[in-house]
Design a protein around this nucleic acid. Structure first.
Length: 150
DNA sequence: GCCAACGTTGGC
DNA sequence: GCCAACGTTGGC
């Protein structure tokens, strides 16, 4: 079992939205590295930190899990979608996604500022300089440590 | 709203 | 293949 972190803007889709919907297809990832993590790395049952970005208190807000193997993101073929990619072909889709299933909301959001202060998290991908990946790996050690802050 | 740090695009 | 220009991300 592996662990991941997935970013979302809570104004668009928050942990409370996921709690209501239970399962959500993670559409719209258009970065190759993030795609590769979903397509090649994720397995059903993997743990996911649900991270709120571009908001008042950026940080880990909840826990989800990977609910499906990766499959082609349907929005890439939808001309009406913001995520439409005219260069992608159905016989060789460019973009993949997984479904994400709600597990629980954290008792409190563990803020980015707090994570930055912890020397235990030196090397954590989220804190890497200039990091902009919306999907990134978390080690078991990082996972357990961050949860211990809750 | 600003800006640093990236990824992508396109001219050459 | 290089690299400047541009667009996006995301913290502050």
């Amino acid at each position: 079992m592996r662990y991941w972190l997935m970013k979302t803007e809570p104004d668009e889709f928050s942990i409370d939205d996921l709690a209501k919907k239970k399962v959500e297809p993670w559409t719209g990832v258009r970065n190759y590295q993030a795609r590769n993590f979903m397509r090649d790395g994720m397995k059903v049952g993997d743990g996911v930190f649900f991270y709120h970005s571009s908001c008042a208190v950026p940080g880990v807000a909840g826990i989800a899990e990977v609910a499906t193997e990766a499959y082609p993101d349907p929005t890439q073929f939808d001309r009406k979608s913001d995520y439409y990619d005219e260069a992608s072909r159905r016989e060789s889709p460019r973009w993949f996604l997984v479904d994400v299933k709600f597990k629980r909301k954290l008792k409190r959001t563990i803020a980015l500022t707090e994570l930055k202060d912890r020397k235990e998290l030196d090397g954590f991908a989220l804190l890497a300089r200039g990091n902009r990946l919306s999907v990134l790996p978390v080690t078991k050690i990082e996972w357990d440590f961050i949860l211990s802050l809750e």
